[in-house]
Nucleic acid binder design. Structure first.
Lengths: 268, 268
DNA sequence: ATGCCTTTGTGAACGCGTGCACAAAGATTG
DNA sequence: CAATCTTTGTGCACGCGTTCACAAAGGCAT
């Protein structure tokens, strides 16, 4: 999953826990699939299975929205789709801008799921003058100079940043100054934003590193279990050889490399 | 952030909490930046600011790895870079395969941050015969038929799925059967995998929906505050008009659309 | 060598999220 | 109309994660 929100840590919005909000899109997707198959009702058990969560958790989540179920029957699919859509604010149109039209930015621009969810790509913006005017995903890329104008004229409140890390903070500041209050950040940097602005971060590199950690642990446990049948279950004796603690300079290895300077994908 | 892990819910690995593991890459990035600037030591306060977290949290996180700091001074940057890299398993080479070379898959293949972190793209795989042999990011795309062979020959244990949702489950099963034990899933589906396999999910659509929720709440509060100076602070009276509860069919609106059938980006 | 000052490492309290288990509610059947 | 059966909604307990606050530890200046 894309990771972590910044700001508004414990501020339960209208009493709906953040963890629940994060699951609503999951339920919505499962419900939409059911709706397409014209299934009239679902039990919490079925829906929970489809969404990959615990049924008790699902019921508790729905209880925050109100009591939309019928005991002995389940939930009305259509009604629930509407209620969750409304709760998530998907019944209205959300114009978004994508800043940084590199590999990733272009890929995002082509994302079909945008319009299906009430999100409309209002503009594609890039700092490279050579990109300006170029067609991407059926739109013409615009230059960063016009960023403020674009935001204001389209009433954009959600911005997507897919620029290199070095540009992200500045871009976010311009977006926010122009009126944007929610940012989806693909650049591998920590954005510092004023209170009241929501930032969500998506970072491929971090996800892979987390997987690598678990992978290493699994390999270590396996090796330990295979070697000694004993009781030493800890993370001792990893399978692969590790570089000695002092015989290596991180600066040497990484200096000047692509280190953290690009988002999850190389921009142009 | 990319969202949520599946499986191994409470299984603290070697005593390191999952939440801590998720932050280690963040620290590592900040430390690497310091290393490049040849900064010898950092205090928890400084590093925490750079990583965007609480300093107490950072110290506690590091305490799980052992005591690598010096009281009164701080942490040795180089040493800490090494320790975290080792803990995350980045001192070894991790071959990965990317399955589904559409817009997103291609963008991922071009991601420079892979190699910088010890991840090596071993192969690009697509089900479309027309894609086979085509060069993407300097590699030749291979056909799904050879998936098992590729996995085994390269000793791949981490797979990235960037296929349409419909293909994701089947792809994951083939990957797992061939030996993959960690999956990064960009397809908007819940993967069901056997125990011992780690799955992390990245879903652009979900991130945007979460932002929309907060955006709507902010707009509602603002409107409520502006209208009545009273005490009705709840989510009453959202700014935009909402469609009436019964006068709308979700199936009608979404039927046959790009609904959840593609990952965060349209594959070819 | 001694005292001061900085910063770590952690004990303890608190709050959120999760999951169990069950009573209440409603449908359904005879 | 009554009995039964299904499924919701939730009270409760538990565990993880976060944060505060402070004692211990080490460097540094005198």
């Amino acid at each position: 999953m894309a990771t972590g929100r910044t700001h508004r840590p414990a501020t339960r919005s209208r009493g709906i826990p953040e963890a629940t909000v994060a699951r609503l899109p999951l339920y919505l997707r499962a419900l939409t699939a059911l709706s397409e198959r014209s299934v009239p009702t679902v039990s919490s058990e079925e829906l929970a299975a489809a969404a990959g969560v615990n049924s008790a958790k699902l019921r508790k989540d729905f209880s925050y929205l109100g009591s939309y179920g019928t005991r002995g029957v389940g939930y009305d699919v259509e009604y629930l789709v509407y209620q969750i859509s409304r709760e998530l604010g998907l019944t209205q149109d959300w114009p978004v801008v994508i800043v940084g039209i590199g590999n990733l930015g272009a890929a995002l621009a082509n994302y079909g799921g945008f319009s299906a969810r009430g999100f409309r790509v209002a503009a594609l913006i890039d700092a490279d003058p050579a990109m300006a005017g170029k067609p991407v995903a059926g739109m013409s890329v615009q230059h960063t100079d016009d960023l403020e104008k674009i935001i204001e004229e389209n009433g954009v409140s959600i911005g997507v940043i897919a620029t290199p890390a070095g540009a992200a903070q500045q871009v976010s500041e311009r977006l926010i100054a122009a009126g944007v209050t929610s940012i989806l950040n693909f650049a591998p940097t920590v954005l510092s934003v004023p209170e009241g602005v929501d930032v969500r971060k998506v970072d491929l590199s971090i996800e892979l590193q987390i997987l690598a950690f678990h992978e290493q642990r699994k390999a270590g446990e396996e090796a330990a279990a295979a070697a000694a049948g004993g009781s030493s279950v800890g993370g001792a004796a990893p399978a692969a050889a590790v570089v000695p603690p002092a015989g290596r300079s991180a600066a040497e290895t990484r200096k000047g490399g692509p280190e953290g300077d690009v988002p999850a994908v190389m921009p142009a």
